[in-house]
Design a protein around this nucleic acid. Structure first.
Length: 257
DNA sequence: ATGGTTGTTCAACAA
């Protein structure tokens, strides 16, 4: 079973690339972030024509998440379902082939002294509560998405330039560790230990040609899946050519069922 | 160099 996550940075601007990518890679499930479109603008028909059903939580202009799969996503849950009124579309969950998939677009946080960073912290608190209350780590479970967290220095080309930022500081590293503490494992690192592997490059300053990137898109998996992870990769070829997203897809192969 | 690029919506915001 091949599962993947990709921040597409507008599903409308990326529709053709998305369709070609699905045809070429044939993942069993793909989690998308930053649709930047309401549900009614999602290309359900075009996606169905290449063999995928979609569960979508859309939002006008910002955010928006979706889970695409070759079989219809089951038991879809939109948002955290907690008592906080939050208009930002950043979390969607569904079951595919008996694996609970949670697709997240973690807030960026802007700057550490901003209200947006306060929201990022609160949002991560709510994510931990969401996982705990549903006891998701007890069963086959994967948490995929744009975490907006650099887990370690080796996950940045120039870690010194990011230290202290909203993506890379002691608190955010602790938050990533907290997720691992729930019983999750970074499936990408389970398979790939080398440096220089990134999932995002700035559009500016020749970020991609210089490989000045970050690994901020992650696939964390529960204990019963981690031992079955057979391969992982980042499709950096998708960052090439005309009008790519600033993020590349991250893929994990699991021996399942 | 508080720089540069992309997307959405329409001058500004977010990343």
């Amino acid at each position: 079973m091949l599962i993947a996550t990709w921040n597409v940075n507008s599903v409308r601007a990326r529709e053709e690339r998305l369709l070609r990518w699905l045809e070429n890679h044939q993942p069993d499930a793909l989690c998308l972030q930053e649709l930047k479109a309401p549900e009614e603008a999602f290309p359900f028909d075009a996606v169905r024509e290449v063999g995928y059903e979609a569960a979508v939580l859309g939002q006008k202009t910002y955010n928006g998440v979706a889970i695409l799969a070759k079989t219809k996503p089951e038991d879809v849950e939109l948002g955290f379902g907690d008592d906080i009124d939050d208009p930002q579309a950043r979390c969607i969950a569904a079951t595919v082939s008996g694996i609970r998939l949670v697709c997240v677009y973690v807030p960026n946080g802007s700057t550490v002294d901003s209200d947006k960073y306060t929201y990022k912290r609160l949002w991560l608190d709510r994510l931990v509560t969401y996982i705990e209350e549903r006891e998701l780590t007890a069963d086959p479970f994967a948490l995929l998405g744009d975490y907006n967290i650099i887990p370690e220095a080796r996950d940045a080309n120039r870690p010194d330039e990011w230290e202290g930022s909203v993506l890379f500081n002691p608190e955010m590293r602790d938050r990533f560790g907290e997720l691992l503490g729930l019983g999750l494992t970074d499936a990408f690192r389970q398979c790939r230990d080398e440096d220089g592997l990134y999932s995002w490059w700035d559009y500016r300053q020749l970020g991609f040609p210089k490989n000045n990137g970050l690994r901020i898109d992650h696939i964390l998996v529960s204990a019963d899946l981690v031992e079955r992870c057979t391969d992982a990769r980042i499709d950096r070829d998708e960052r090439k050519g005309q009008k790519p997203s600033d993020h590349a897809p991250v893929l994990v192969e699991i021996d399942w069922p």
